[in-house]
């Protein structure tokens, strides 16, 4: 490989120095301008701010009545402003797809890589295995609790899904990918992911369609505070949870070895 001569290298360095100086200047200016802007914003913690308007008041006052969810944040993200959250799941999906594009290995190459790696794999040892065996059921239970109670208490599909995904990563680390693959093969993984995303898209599509055309939506809200309440929020949380858990675990598996 031909290296640059000293003159060219010098030009590059000087260009870099100039770029650094300009960049620092720009960042400093940005900080100053933003601080100036903040100094004009309404005071922190105050109740009479522009953001305390009819929108947030109605979410609090009528959220339970209109969506059936006691967790108003869940009502906002899965009912009032559900389109954002559909986009958010699409972001997760896009990131997972992009990581697949970058890091996925062909099955043959994957098997070869795993075989090459085998002798260097450290023995996980009894501490990790036993801890994992004790922890994983609780983690899965906690994840499921967060997902299923997302409309009643803090939590929801994203946090619950992340916990579930973490439990699967722990399983994988403690017992090795072969064991995890027994219940989460590539095929099941994609079926879960695509199924959950399609259910989410279609269910919300139905709500958007009826809502946008002023047709009555026919989804019962249920008894407030019980587990079967909140209309579609519960099932949607489950779908979001599956998408999130799949994305978390899938990204881990792709980074780890380039496949399932």
């Amino acid at each position: 490989m031909n290296r640059l001569n000293d003159g060219e290298r010098g030009i590059f360095r000087r260009f870099q120095a100039g770029y650094g100086a300009i960049g620092l200047l720009v960042s400093g200016a940005l900080a100053a301008v933003l601080l100036l802007t903040v100094s004009y914003l309404p005071g922190f913690g105050q109740a009479d701010r522009p953001t305390e308007n009819e929108v947030s008041q109605r979410y609090i006052a009528k959220g339970l009545e209109e969506t059936g969810a006691t967790n108003v944040v869940a009502a906002v993200i899965l009912d009032y402003r559900a389109f954002d959250t559909l986009g958010e799941s699409a972001v997760l999906f896009a990131a997972l797809a992009a990581v697949i594009l970058l890091l996925r290995e062909e099955p043959a190459a994957l098997a070869r890589r795993m075989a090459e790696r085998k002798p260097f794999e450290p023995d996980q040892g009894p501490i990790l295995r036993i801890t994992a065996r004790v922890l994983i059921p609780w983690l899965l239970l906690f994840g499921a609790y967060l997902v299923l109670n997302g409309h009643l208490s803090p939590g929801g599909g994203f946090s619950g899904g992340a916990v579930t995904g973490a439990a699967m990563i722990l399983h994988n680390l403690a017992f090795g990918p072969e064991q995890t693959r027994r219940f989460l093969s590539e095929r099941i993984f994609f079926r879960l992911l695509v199924g959950a995303l399609c259910f989410y898209g279609l269910a919300k599509g139905y709500v958007f369609f009826t809502g946008g055309n002023h047709l009555p939506g026919s989804i019962p809200l249920g008894q407030a505070g019980s587990i079967f309440s909140g209309g579609l929020i519960g099932p949607l949380n489950i779908a979001v949870g599956i998408v999130t858990a799949c994305a978390v675990y899938g990204i881990f598996a792709l980074f780890d070895r380039g496949g399932w």
Binding site: Q57, L64, E65, T70, N71, V73
Partner: peptide, 10 residues
């Protein structure tokens, strides 16, 4: 914002 009953007070 976790409500305890219907008609929360903003």
């Amino acid at each position: 914002p976790i409500l305890t009953g219907p008609g929360g007070d903003p």
